[in-house]
Design a protein around this nucleic acid. Structure first.
Lengths: 229, 229
DNA sequence: TCAAATATATGATTTTAGTCAGCTTTCCAA
DNA sequence: TTGGAAAGCTGACTAAAATCATATATTTGA
């Protein structure tokens, strides 16, 4: 009887914190904790979701397949984030796929506990709404970046974003390690173009690498580049 | 005492339909109806909104200024759509500007009536949530289109989108008339590139024009182009 | 009504990014 | 451990789109 939602710290980061003791107890009783290996899918685009997934550990990419066969990564979800809530709320199949970028631990929460609480606890609903409003703003920002910034600017911004949102290890390397292809899919460019820019940044001393690991070496330069200087 | 929300048909298209009679009465008593001339701003990016705007008539563009001085149009809002709710809910300044692209009539609804209802009427809150979930999905789709489709495909898609969502007049021209610059800002491209593509589509008979007005002439061809054939 | 301002159009050129090809390194499972 | 697959890298070339320049048409306000 360990791993109760009531004691789970990641809950502080998401809408579940607005649930009452009873509601949380119900969710905790119905949830299923799963271990997901790096590269494994949590759910697929077009799938009907019978619940949401709360990330306890690790990072997942949320992506959408485009007509030309490329994956566009729309969001990266880490500790505390809830995946699949949009689909559950809209009662639609998922518009995104979720694949683990590192080994993960996620809790599957059947939708009933969520949907009932939505209809009975306005505090919870408003909290969910706030989170979704936040996601929507982020999505708007991504749209503007995609259309108005160069690939080089977007790559620079991606590294800054990863550093800010997922942190760095003790040696200053980004905590999330993405393949070059994944970085390209976040940025929305060809893998080769992405690699070329990474090489350039490294040569100029903006970033440092060690194997797959990448670290921001000159934040100011990267930031200037993003701003268009 | 005409123009009561209770009798307003556009309410059917948005979350206000989930309000109770009393809640609606309060909103109706506090709302202010405004006429907005084409080109006039309804609110600006960075502005603190003290309420939401419900569109009764006309079309507004919701856009965000990018660092390089270009406007990216993120969404077009017409009859029944509520603007500014994201900011009111998140209690943040607006991330978008709203400017009328045709003469408009909008109702300003002070946030108190909305926020109180959000905390007291779960049906309303869930309805708002559903609408936001829908917007978020659309935003995800836009992100993928931006990064994976060519400018030509995006222009074609824009015309199809405008036809589907805002309709056509009796002669088959799109009901929303946007300047070439606005179309370019929807698509996220340079105005010249946009004009060039419009010329090409016209030459090929995919679209027809009459002054500023544009009409879809060969839907199938446009659709094939979007799909990558 | 007419001149200035704005919007539309098109050509020439440059820049940016995508594609294709080949090569090296790293990873992983038999 | 080692051989094949996947990932990473680089060069050459091509395609797409932005930019710059200029011309024409349309709107608009004095």
């Amino acid at each position: 009887m360990k791993n109760r939602c009531e004691n789970c710290i990641v809950r502080q980061f998401n809408a579940l914190r607005a649930m009452s003791k009873e509601e949380l107890k119900r969710v905790s009783d119905s949830k299923i904790t799963k271990s997901i290996k790096k590269g494994q899918a949590i759910f697929e685009e077009g799938e009907k979701l019978n619940g949401v997934f709360c990330v306890r550990e690790g990072v997942s990419k949320l992506s959408k397949l485009s007509a030309n066969g490329k994956d566009q990564i729309v969001k990266l979800a880490s500790k505390g984030e809830v995946m699949g809530q949009r689909s559950v709320i809209a009662e639609e199949t998922s518009n995104l796929s979720a694949v683990a970028v590192s080994d993960m631990e996620v809790c599957f929460i059947p939708k009933e506990g969520i949907v009932d609480t939505l209809h009975n606890n306005p505090n919870f609903t408003v909290e969910v709404l706030r989170h979704m409003a936040h996601d929507l703003r982020e999505a708007d920002d991504v749209i503007v970046n995609m259309s108005q910034k160069s690939v080089k600017q977007r790559v620079a911004e991606a590294f800054l974003y990863l550093g800010e949102n997922f942190g760095e290890d003790s040696e200053g390397f980004l905590s999330v390690t993405l393949s070059r292809e994944d970085i390209a899919n976040v940025v929305g460019t060809a893998t080769e173009s992405c690699i070329r820019i990474i090489s350039e940044f490294k040569k100029k001393g903006y970033i440092k690498t060690s194997g797959k690991k990448i670290g921001v070496a000159n934040e100011k330069k990267l930031r200037d580049l993003v701003e268009g200087f």
